[in-house]
Design a protein around this nucleic acid. Structure first.
Lengths: 399, 399
DNA sequence: GCTATTTAATACGAGGTGCAAATTAAATTC
DNA sequence: GAATTTAATTTGCACCTCGTATTAAATAGC
């Protein structure tokens, strides 16, 4: 068990204050004190230290309370965008997206590399990732020395704590210490995280879960991922492993075990269409899902039935997840949402059917079709979170 | 977010020290210091305060290090068994079991009431529970004033934080504030908790998970329950709700949704046998499972096939739980284990088949057929844990 | 234009916490 | 019986948060 000392105490309160400032935009010290339940004295001390460290800025204009309040005006505080810069990335089978953000999470530059890296050797992938990071940093008018941290979000089973990739559909090898590899290549601290976790934190910071401290996110892409937010933190599983929804079992079929991935994975849906000439090329380029909608509108029967089946499987799975976690909101993201109404309707129907009566209405289903930048921005949020948590300086004795 | 102040800090370290003393039996201050990574100074201060409060005792004999060590002998510390007394109970459909334990968790008295309370009105059940608690306390040679806390473990969806029973198979009503009801009846602080959570903590304190800080427990009884231990704490779900495994969906059958409870609940297995004359009576008395083994040995085909089907369903479900949580150990408890080899073998087989290859060997399956007292003892542990956590006195200023 | 009022933010002192170093305590060894 | 060794406590210090008093900076009233 972690031992509690004054330093930990300070770190906790600092994080609490800093996060409040980030979240509630320009905000005065009194209001921080109310929200965090810390005394104004303590808030002053902490904000003082944050100002010293250059992590936040004052702004004298902002006080937008109703005009004509009597006393001394509040000084508004906000996160200093230029306090740090991080790179976030989404590494997928068919493309990589990089973003550089400032300390506030604003995107400074974006770079998409539409390259299929599927199952290339590590060295090749690492080369491409390194190249992407470097180019995106240059695009932002920066140099790698200006970047404080990098976070790579990838599909598969990722052990965040150690930076190992246990298994990932885009790697041939298993058990790779990718964080160490990229840290030395970039000579910048590099974090490896599951893409689903990244976008989960992204939604908590910038997206559709800003108001919640508990929620569940399900990512429907080449692989099916899960992110659980619990008490404003990512729940990283008992063993620190990431969750891989595709491995979930839906039941026993005539040919044995039926896994979710065989019903609802991207390749499970599109794969059947590979024989179709129009399609093979698009799939190979990783553009499968973007072409699907046209086909669905053209009433491609096989595709529609695949989409319906997938929606059903996902709907059941979501009901099970809700049964276990009972979150107030479930956010669905990922390329499979592009399957459109046939998929979504059957998903909703299956969910409504499968959710136990006692939990009806507990969870709200939200669909989010953000682009890949948002995933990368989520990865950046993971990196930023660790910066926010890190102690920086403490008030300490006078220098 | 909870604000960190010196008091919280002290509380955390006190809990850490007290738990170390409980867990590692008679233990010296130096060793506590090593294990908790607190300085010997701090350990001395905290143990001093614990001694003042009478929560722990010194013992000068014990130092069992290899004979003939040179210096001043260590003074061993241990939990004071008489510092408090709690009642733990397991309330099931067909019987209630109560235990009174001391502060260390030792059982002082046990009482089993083999009464079927299934779906009686609240008042009736509350009467019986109150009676049971009172009698068990008397059996221990105590009076209710000597009891510091009561914890009732029941099946169903229990909201521990508020003490509400959202739904339970043994209650007709839903959304009952049972903790408040029993607190006033007994005029003793009373906690309500899911029976699965209770035995999960029980295994962490006394049973087969003493050495772990993460694990998962699955209870196979009238209802199917789940307990997750995460970082030495019960994971109570995003919304603070308990988990009800029986509601999990296994797939779509010809008649629609197939839930786990329809395959592996106690009544699902035994229910089909109700027509059988030998059986109806036993089931009605809640002794169904105890009679099963004889029947299985007598090769009752229908029963065996029901057991096999149940084992299969549970095996798949466990694989899914492991996929989500990746715990190092899964403990299975509950009356359904009495189904014996046909059930267990098919469970093991289904699990082995369904567990994804990447997680093979991550989780160890452990079967535990402890009696109902152990469940009640687990409930007592829940009550004790809250006492351990509560601040008692702090060192404070000299009185 | 000046003073009174009001609200925000800081200074100061008190009380609590943990840690390192020095000190005391209680045994064994020679 | 003195030296040695290890355990536990005492002492002194740096840090944290908090309540109260004080200072800062605006508006309202005359």
């Amino acid at each position: 068990m972690k031992t509690a000392d004054p330093e930990l105490m300070r770190a906790m309160n600092r994080l609490s204050v800093l996060d409040t400032i980030r979240r509630r935009g320009p905000i005065s010290r009194v209001e921080i004190s109310e929200r965090t339940e810390l005394s104004t004295t303590t808030v002053s001390a902490i904000t003082g230290s944050l100002l010293d460290d250059g992590l936040i800025l004052t702004r004298h204009e902002g006080d937008i309370r109703n005009e004509a309040v009597r006393g001394r005006p509040r000084v508004m505080l906000e996160v200093n965008p230029d306090a740090a810069r991080v790179v976030g990335a989404k590494i997928a089978a068919s493309r990589m997206v990089f973003v550089v953000t400032n300390f506030r999470g604003d995107v400074l530059s974006t770079l998409t590399l539409p390259i299929r890296i599927d199952r290339q050797p590590i060295a090749v992938i690492a080369d491409l990732v390194e190249d992407g990071v470097r180019r995106c940093v240059v695009d932002a008018g920066l140099s790698l020395e200006d970047v404080d941290s990098v976070c790579l979000g990838l599909p598969g089973v990722i052990e965040h704590r150690t930076g190992h990739i246990r298994s990932s559909p885009i790697f041939r090898e298993i058990n790779i210490d990718f964080a160490a590899e990229m840290s030395t290549r970039l000579s910048t601290p590099t974090i490896v995280e599951s893409d689903a976790h990244a976008i989960t934190l992204g939604h908590h910071w910038f997206g559709k879960a800003r108001d919640l401290e508990d929620m569940v996110l399900i990512s429907l892409e080449q692989t099916l991922g899960l992110g659980v937010l619990h008490g404003n933190r990512l729940f990283r599983g008992a063993g620190g492993l990431s969750h891989n929804l595709g491995d979930l079992v839906l039941g026993m079929g005539p040919q044995g075990i039926v896994r979710l991935s065989s019903q609802a994975g991207e390749s499970a849906i599109l794969g059947e269409q590979q024989t179709d000439g129009r399609f093979a090329e698009a799939v190979r380029l990783g553009r499968g899902m973007t072409h699907v909608q046209a086909l669905i509108q053209a009433d491609d029967d096989r595709l529609i039935s695949a989409a319906v089946r997938a929606g059903e499987a996902v709907g059941l799975t979501i009901a099970n997840i809700v049964t276990l976690f009972a979150p107030p909101r479930v956010i669905l993201v990922g390329s499979s949402l592009a399957l459109g109404e046939p998929f979504l309707n059957s998903l909703r129907d299956a969910y409504a059917l499968a959710i136990p009566p006692s939990l009806k209405g507990v969870s709200e289903l939200v669909f989010d079709d953000s682009a890949d930048d948002f995933w990368a921005q989520g990865a950046a949020a993971v990196a930023l979170y660790e910066l926010y948590e890190s102690p920086w300086s403490t008030t300490g004795p006078a220098l």
